[in-house]
């Protein structure tokens, strides 16, 4: 299911155009990383999805509804560590729950669960002004998850954090990914996006200049086999038994290059197991190369050029019909 659809979004502030005909599609369960330099329009994009800003033109849908219809059902972690720090984390989360219409034992239980998830159970009753930046950001994650949102928007999660805090935040985001949350992360930190996301878009001058699945970028010297179906865990066991160097991430299997016999055996295995191979192509370099390539104004490879969301939806629907 489509979690987030933005089509031909234009946003201007006075005479400055921030977003130009921006298209974006995020599927349910996907962790989408939006990369861009400072001032590229990442935060503006998030504020549009949250409904804080209105687009000058274009269409935004969150799970098929307008942002205003989804109000309160989108989790939001703002860019800067700005919270009401006179409260303890528990008080703050209780208030935030109250603002969302939650109360009583269910709220208390939810807060306890979230404090445990973000590792703040021990310090939940201390004033937030005494927290480190990393701890404050973890409170931010907890408040974003409070209403069990269908979509989570995270703006610069590691902004202002020290290396230890960044690692903790990354682990937390990986936890959320493993729990199946649909997340849009805006960041200018390539390694963070690379570690956490499964799809990435690069925002340049207010539009997505390139977009790709990260599995296609992780091996600089390999071949990526893309399956039509999401494999079962049983396939992982079979893959490891062929060769431990084979890496699978979702529908993408990366095989070392210059290994024709291994590739042949792998393809045979996939066909025997009943999988459909959608494509087989060399991996396309790493994210840093792609980012630098795109922000320097060069055209991305054809398969990474963004498509209009409706074209993607049409192709997905066509694929389902064929099956």
């Amino acid at each position: 299911m489509t979690a987030l659809l933005l089509e031909k979004i234009v946003k201007r502030f006075d005479t400055t155009t921030i977003l130009r005909q921006l298209n974006l599609l995020v599927q349910e369960g996907q962790v989408y990383g939006l990369l861009g330099a400072n001032g590229a329009g990442k935060s503006t994009l998030i504020h549009l999805i949250m409904g804080f800003l209105y687009p000058d033109s274009g269409r935004i849908e969150v799970f098929g509804k307008t942002p205003s219809a989804m109000h309160g059902q989108i989790g939001y972690l703002p860019e800067r560590l700005r919270y009401h720090t006179h409260c303890s984390a528990r008080e703050y989360l209780t208030y935030m729950g109250n603002f969302a219409g939650m109360r009583g034992a269910s709220l208390t239980s939810r807060i306890n669960d979230l404090l445990e998830l973000v590792g703040l159970t021990e310090s939940a009753d201390k004033r937030m002004r005494n927290y480190s930046k990393g701890m404050t950001q973890r409170v931010g994650i907890a408040q974003a998850l409070l209403s069990d949102p269908q979509l989570l928007l995270i703006d610069e999660p590691s902004s202002g954090l020290d290396p230890q805090g960044q690692l903790e935040m990354r682990d937390l985001l990986l936890d959320l990914r493993s729990q199946g949350h649909t997340i849009l992360i805006c960041s200018h930190q390539l390694d963070e996006i690379e570690a956490v996301c499964n799809r990435v878009g690069i925002l340049v001058h207010g539009a997505i200049a390139a977009e790709t699945d990260l599995a296609q970028l992780t091996g600089t010297n390999g071949v990526v086999i893309t399956l039509k179906e999401t494999p079962t865990d049983a396939l992982d066991f079979a893959l490891r038994s062929i060769d431990p160097s084979i890496v699978r991430d979702d529908r993408f299997i990366t095989v070392p290059e210059n290994s024709p016999s291994l590739q042949g055996r792998l393809l045979q295995l996939l066909l025997d197991e009943g999988y459909t191979v959608a494509s087989l192509q060399p991996s396309l370099g790493n994210l840093r190369d792609l980012y630098l390539h795109v922000v320097s104004g060069k055209e991305p490879p054809a398969e990474m050029q963004p498509q209009a969301p409706l074209a993607i939806l049409d192709s997905l629907l066509a694929g389902e019909e064929q099956q």
Partner: peptide, 17 residues
């Protein structure tokens, strides 16, 4: 009118509230 308000405005409390 402080950035802390964004987190509150994201709730179902809404702009009117």
């Amino acid at each position: 009118n402080r950035p802390q308000g964004y987190v509150v405005l994201a709730r179902s409390l809404g702009r009117k509230g």
